[in-house]
Write a protein that binds this DNA or RNA. Structure first.
Lengths: 189, 189
DNA sequence: CTGATTTGCCTAAAGGTGTTAGGTAAATGC
DNA sequence: GCATTTACCTAACACCTTTAGGCAAATCAG
């Protein structure tokens, strides 16, 4: 009965990899057990249940994303910061589709408040400091940016833009330019 | 052994209602059977399998959404059309969260091509005729609008904007104004 | 180093979902 | 009124989730 050395940490990391390979909603405690060559029930010493696993994968993804975004923002401002930030999301989603999907799962308010999600909101606000917006327009703009980034990435990954000219990279660049222009000339109500 | 009168049609409609009540990914063949007071296996005469049910719910949602959008667009142009179209999405998602989620599921290319999804793209292009965009900018704009609408609605429904001032209705209006302004002054590359 | 304790992984079992194969009775058609 | 079709059923299997209780490996006390 050799011990494998399971920990919540290792399980969550493996779960994240599994998500990237087979899709977040195909992540299953059983498959995870199989990968560690261990019986399913053994995982329940480290995880409360299946939902717990998924939540922890989501939190991991949010952390990784926030870390990357913070890195990308360092030393940048204005359109430069905007593009760097946006590209972090898009690149992360492409590299880690399962983790990205995980990051979109609805968390209960308490968990969300303690997650890296708040860093994301702060960083978006930081970017907007490079533009001339005051409250409440800044909040409107935060929400717009979140919508565009999330919406674009999820449509692109879902194949919504597939196989049609012009290519999506071109569209992405033009959208970032358009957003920059919009933020520089944000219309009065 | 009284016959209940199951048809694929009725099952899909009931599935859509079930989705709105309990969430699209909680839609299960078993629960559907329970609602018709029928054994699970009986559904397999009308549905290929569970995935087939979900796909058909998605197609139904896409149709309904396209019908509403077409209605809303009739007789409108410019910003008026833009707002009406956008509101159809937002309202539909609020009234029918399960169906809306269904409408986001990835369809295989053949199914997608035969779905009401193409009408959505056509209507978006129709709206853009009210602005002065030529290809390929029109395509970029189609993608931007899709991203914003989908992104905003899914973030709002996921609770991403919850409990923070200003309220989301205000943001939504301002975003529509901003998009209108952006489309009227679409930046050159 | 030995014995006690903790703890990691196991077996067993129960309940839920998905799916297929084959039967019976109700509806339909000649 | 009989033959055929078809709607729904029972039975069975496979897989996932979760809990309860057991044994042996790791850890710790002395």
């Amino acid at each position: 009965m050799a011990r494998v050395g399971l920990t919540t940490e290792r399980l969550v990391r493996a779960g994240a990899e599994l998500a990237d390979e087979v899709g977040f909603d195909q992540v299953t405690v059983s498959e995870l057990a199989r990968r560690f060559d261990v019986k399913v029930a053994s995982l329940y010493s480290h995880l409360k249940n299946s939902q717990d696993l998924k939540t922890k994968i989501a939190l991991l993804a949010l952390e990784e994303l926030a870390d990357r975004a913070a890195d990308a923002l360092a030393g940048r401002a204005g359109k430069d910061a905007l593009a760097a930030f946006a590209n972090v999301y898009r690149d992360y989603a492409r590299e880690h589709p399962g983790r990205y999907a995980a990051a979109q799962t609805r968390l209960d308010p308490a968990t969300a408040a303690a997650s890296a999600g708040v860093r994301h909101a702060q960083m978006t606000r930081a970017i907007l400091r490079g533009y001339d917006l005051t409250e409440p327009d800044q909040t409107h703009a935060v929400r717009l940016l979140g919508s565009v980034f999330h919406g674009y990435v999820s449509l692109e990954m879902g194949g919504g833009f597939s196989h049609s000219a012009p290519d999506t990279q071109e569209t992405w660049s033009r959208i970032l330019e358009a957003l920059d222009a919009l933020l520089r000339h944000w219309p009065a109500p």
